[in-house]
Design a protein around this nucleic acid. Structure first.
Lengths: 339, 339
DNA sequence: ATGAAAGCGCTAACAG
DNA sequence: CTGTTAGCGCTTTCAT
């Protein structure tokens, strides 16, 4: 049932080295033998065992992808982009969901370690000491998405979250809004959520408005959580006129909460999100947001990673991609750009 | 840098066979040696190479998951369920997106073939001759989700799509609707989309209404496509009073289209979806739908698969899970169940 | 209880 | 150009 290179060699009347050469085009083989081997391979439907190959090569052809949660459309889109390149380069992707859990994160990293996968694409909220130890001790190429990590020798890809948040906050301020609330993710260390929060804070300050804690909502990555948070918030801060949600999922939770409180979006309260997940254009109302080139980030990260796996020296290995403000129905304005 | 079992054996002053026994608890080892080996393993931070292990065992500890599109929340949820069990059983998941493309599907299957992964969880719209050949010739355990495949020796998990569609159509008919439109996916062979369509057709007939081609919209799995289809449809069939979308994503596209045409949902037209993806409860209006136990299907499929990988004979290997009608804001009715 | 040795299937250095 | 051979790192008889 299981046919191996030896069987092919036997039937073709050559050595297995020759068969290997034929399969990999690694060394010239006389045409006649070449054809004979190829024919036997065809006939038998022989497929070399990738595990054995991996052992000999010290490569598995596997890329590990560690993300918080595949059910978050942002990560799904990212994975889609990653997959396109992974596939194109004849690798496969091992997907690991950490569900924002630090222990899971480390245990996955350990599973993927060393010879197992050839490289890792990694997304996390917080880079701890343990992470650093891990990445420093393992020789694996690693690419971070959605954050940089200067003190580690890893490549990374991100957008300028600070400036984007600054822009979108200013977009509200410019048109007269003063009570602009923000919904932010837990602030761990220098993550995108952290930067977005500071972009908001500084934009407000530029208009002479000091950070007002009562306009800051804390939530996480679940719509449900944001929904509840916003409903509670509205009881205490009915005077709010604009809300900057630091992700589109949060924006959806917020809009739903506003509507359930009988508040019109955008007429009474305007809402903006962040990311531009596909649902942002199809929600009702469609959502004004910061477009990140999500799939593109996934693709580029993977390209960089694979080049590093192949031992190439990549010069520009810490990229900042451009973002774009997309105005839609959740804010009142003549469309500056976008749809 | 790279430490192997030989190094451990040398340092512990035993043979590598003994080290192997210690690591796997495969055979009794004298306590004293056991401790010594363990200590060396600790000190060196030794981790056995899974590829070598795989070669010896003829197992990789990898499960292949082949789905159409991870950015579809239905599949994302499924993958989440799969992952939970995969992880729990100490396997890893190789994720493959086929983007509804038959060539990609086959080429992925081939990549995953034989020794590479230990089993496959497979989702597809159409089972072709080539699929059958593949699954018959490869000895790999395979579990289908979202469809059965009687003529193949595979396990499967699904819900009763026909009956669910029948129920939801009847739900409209019972309350007086007569012009009930359906949005269906491409009809390939006996897929869930096919069954849902027939459930609709038969429910209508049970009320004496023959299938009316002008009430049947064809779309695919992209919101955008459904959106356009429905807008076009509304120009020609303004008298429609209810729409059964055969997926929640379609329902979202439909509702958005209705609203953009100035039609109130549910007051002028009621809409129902299918699947109960998380967004169904947070869309505005929230969507009446058929709840499939999505993550549960993923979990159960994986449990079955892994048992078959381990050579267990699974008796109930073609499961039909229960579904549930969830009434929300996109239809007018006293809530029968759900939120 | 333990070590020696034979694979698992493929690649690559070496010798012709 | 081609065959022989020695690994890749671990598991598992087979003796002892």
């Amino acid at each position: 049932m299981k046919i191996t290179i030896d069987e092919v060699a036997r039937r073709a009347g050559v050595s297995k080295a020759t068969v290997s050469r034929v399969m990999n085009n690694s060394k010239p083989v006389k045409q006649e033998k070449y054809d004979r081997v190829m024919q036997v391979i065809e006939e038998l439907g022989f497929i070399p065992n990738p595990v054995a190959r991996g052992l000999a090569h010290q490569k598995t052809g596997l890329v590990g992808v560690v993300i918080p949660d595949i059910t978050n459309p942002f990560f799904a889109e990212l994975v889609k982009g990653i997959e396109e390149v992974v596939r194109d380069k004849n690798y496969n992707m091992v997907l690991c969901n950490t569900f924002h859990n630090f222990e899971k994160e480390m245990s996955y990293l350990k599973m993927l370690r060393e010879k197992y996968v050839d490289g890792i694409i990694f997304m996390t909220a917080k880079v701890t000491h343990e992470h650093r130890d891990f990445f420093r001790s393992s020789q694996l190429p690693v690419t971070f998405i959605n954050r940089k990590c200067e003190d580690l020798n890893v490549s990374s890809i991100d957008i300028d979250n600070y400036q984007a948040a600054h822009d979108i906050t200013t977009f509200f301020l410019k048109r007269g809004h003063r009570r602009v609330a923000i919904i932010r993710a837990p602030l761990t260390d220098k993550t995108s959520g952290y930067e977005r929060f500071h972009g908001y804070r500084d934009a407000m300050q530029a208009y002479g408005i000091e950070l007002n804690a009562s306009l800051v909502m804390r939530s996480n990555f679940k719509i449900e959580n944001t929904y509840k948070t916003v409903r509670r918030f509205l009881r205490e801060e009915p005077a709010v006129t604009a809300i900057f949600a630091t992700s589109d999922l949060m924006a959806i939770g917020a809009i739903k909460a506003l509507q359930d409180e009988g508040i019109q979006v955008p007429h009474q309260v305007e809402v903006a999100g962040f990311d531009d997940i596909p649902m942002a254009s199809y929600y009702h109302p469609s959502i004004t947001t910061v477009r990140q080139p999500i799939a593109e980030m996934g693709r580029t990260a993977t390209k960089i990673l694979i080049r590093e796996i192949n031992g190439e020296k990549v010069k520009n290995r810490n990229l900042i991609l451009p973002y774009q403000l997309i105005c839609r129905e959740s804010t009142l304005t003549s469309k500056v750009s976008g749809e």
